Computed example of a mutant assay.
Amino acid sequence: MKKPLIILLIVILLALIGGGGWWLMSHHTEDKKGTEGIGSWFTSKPPQASFIEIKDLVITLQAEENRPRYLLLDVVLVVRGEEQSTQSQAFEPAVRSATVALLNNQPFDDVRSRTLLTLHDQLLKRYRDEAAHLGFQALPFDDIMISKMVFQ
């Protein structure tokens, strides 16, 4: 009599464990928040990206025809979180200065022939150098985007 009772208890226990596991998995994989099962419980999501626009950077370029040439550039800082946003806004004058220092009086044709990726990488390197010069351990933003580039 004890043997069938023990087997019945084991079957009930396994059924409860299986049912609980199914319920747990089905409710969290169908979650509308974009989670991906149990693994998402253990990973933290970075804050949503926000953007800080640095508009109307006017840079004088060298021209061979003895007439002035200009570049109008808009740069966007990609930040995550309130703290990074505040630090990036305080760093904005350094971004403006480093951008002008990098491109000012460069030959018009050289600047015009650069790809956006090349310019992006050169600007980011210059910003890192400027941050190090000012005593920052790292840039206060994650990345940059070039949103406008107008040559005259």
Rank of each mutant, 00 (worst) to 15 (best):
N105C: 05
Y127F: 04
K3M: 04
I146W: 06
D31V: 14
L16R: 08
L77K: 07
L139H: 09
L73I: 14
S40G: 08
Q152H: 13
F51R: 11
E53H: 02
L14R: 03
L119V: 03
L117C: 03
N66T: 11
G19P: 09
V76E: 10
I17W: 05
P107I: 01
D142Q: 05
Q87D: 05
L24N: 14
L77V: 01
I6F: 09
P140T: 13
W23C: 11
S97R: 09
D142N: 11
H120T: 03
R128T: 01
E65R: 09
L116P: 00
H133F: 05
R80P: 07
A63G: 08
I12V: 15
G135R: 10
F91L: 01
T43G: 09
F108S: 01
T99W: 02
A131N: 09
A101R: 05
L14P: 04
V111L: 01
L77T: 08
E130C: 06
R96F: 04
L57M: 08
L8T: 13
I59W: 00
E92H: 12
L13N: 05
P140I: 14
Q89K: 11
I144P: 00
F91S: 10
K2Y: 01
N105R: 03
Q122I: 12
A98N: 04
E36Y: 12
D129N: 03
N104K: 02
F141K: 03
F141Y: 02
K33C: 14
V150E: 05
S147M: 06
V150I: 11
E130F: 11
L5T: 04
D74S: 11
M25F: 15
T35H: 13
E64I: 14
P46A: 02
L9D: 05
K33N: 15
M25D: 12
K148E: 09
Y70D: 03
L134H: 07
R67S: 10
H28Y: 15
I52E: 02
V100P: 04
S85W: 14
V76R: 05
T29E: 13
F91K: 12
E30L: 15
R112C: 06
T43R: 12
I146E: 09
L77E: 12
A138T: 10
G19W: 00
L9R: 07
N66Y: 13
D121T: 10
A15L: 01
Q87R: 13
E36I: 08
L134G: 02
D31M: 09
I144V: 01
V100G: 00
G34F: 09
Q84S: 06
D110L: 01
G39T: 15
